[in-house]
Measured scan of single mutants.
Amino acid sequence: QWKVGDKCSAIWSEDGCIYPATIASIDFKRETCVVVYTGYGNREEQNLSDLLSPICE
């Protein structure tokens, strides 16, 4: 189960590419979260089910 502060990978809606991110907040009722893309600072809402394991850098 994901928690705030977890590192993950998420698909950015603008280009469909996968980027490393950190979970900033979680809404368990809606099963969504807000991620912050590492190195970019962009925030975006994602479905918890769409999150991927962190990418090894």
Rank of each mutant, 00 (worst) to 15 (best):
Q1G: 13
W2T: 13
W2A: 14
W2Y: 06
K3A: 12
K3Y: 13
K3T: 09
K3C: 10
V4T: 07
V4N: 07
G5L: 04
G5Y: 07
G5M: 03
G5D: 09
D6V: 06
D6Q: 01
D6I: 10
K7V: 11
C8E: 00
C8Y: 00
C8K: 00
S9G: 10
S9P: 05
A10Y: 06
A10M: 07
A10L: 07
A10P: 01
I11W: 10
I11V: 12
I11D: 02
I11Q: 02
W12M: 03
W12Q: 02
W12E: 01
W12I: 05
W12K: 01
W12H: 04
S13C: 03
S13W: 09
D15K: 09
G16S: 04
G16C: 07
G16A: 05
C17S: 03
C17K: 15
I18E: 03
I18D: 02
Y19A: 01
P20Y: 12
P20E: 12
P20L: 12
P20M: 12
A21Y: 07
A21W: 09
A21M: 06
A21T: 05
T22H: 03
T22A: 03
T22F: 08
I23D: 02
I23V: 05
I23K: 03
I23M: 02
I23H: 01
A24K: 04
A24W: 13
A24R: 07
A24P: 02
S25F: 11
S25N: 02
S25E: 10
I26V: 03
I26L: 04
I26K: 00
I26G: 01
D27C: 10
D27L: 10
F28A: 11
F28V: 09
F28M: 11
K29D: 13
K29I: 13
K29M: 12
K29E: 14
K29C: 06
R30T: 11
E31K: 14
E31N: 14
E31C: 10
E31T: 05
E31H: 11
T32N: 03
T32Y: 07
T32H: 02
T32V: 10
C33T: 00
C33R: 00
C33K: 00
C33H: 00
V34N: 01
V34I: 14
V34M: 08
V34E: 07
V34L: 04
V35Q: 02
V35S: 01
V35K: 01
V35H: 01
V36W: 07
Y37G: 00
Y37W: 06
T38L: 11
T38I: 12
T38D: 15
T38S: 09
T38R: 07
T38H: 09
T38Q: 05
G39N: 09
Y40V: 07
G41P: 02
G41D: 03
N42L: 14
N42K: 10
N42W: 15
N42T: 15
N42Y: 14
R43V: 07
R43W: 13
E44S: 06
E44L: 06
E44F: 08
E44D: 06
E44V: 05
E45D: 03
E45M: 09
E45T: 13
Q46A: 04
Q46H: 13
Q46I: 10
Q46S: 03
Q46Y: 05
Q46E: 05
N47D: 05
N47C: 10
N47V: 04
N47H: 12
N47S: 07
N47F: 13
N47W: 13
L48T: 03
L48R: 02
S49Q: 09
S49K: 14
S49G: 09
S49C: 08
D50S: 05
D50K: 06
D50T: 05
L51N: 02
L52F: 11
L52N: 02
L52W: 04
L52Q: 02
L52Y: 10
S53R: 13
S53C: 08
S53W: 13
P54R: 11
P54L: 09
P54N: 05
I55R: 11
I55K: 04
I55N: 09
C56L: 15
C56T: 15
C56W: 15
C56K: 10
E57S: 14
E57Q: 11
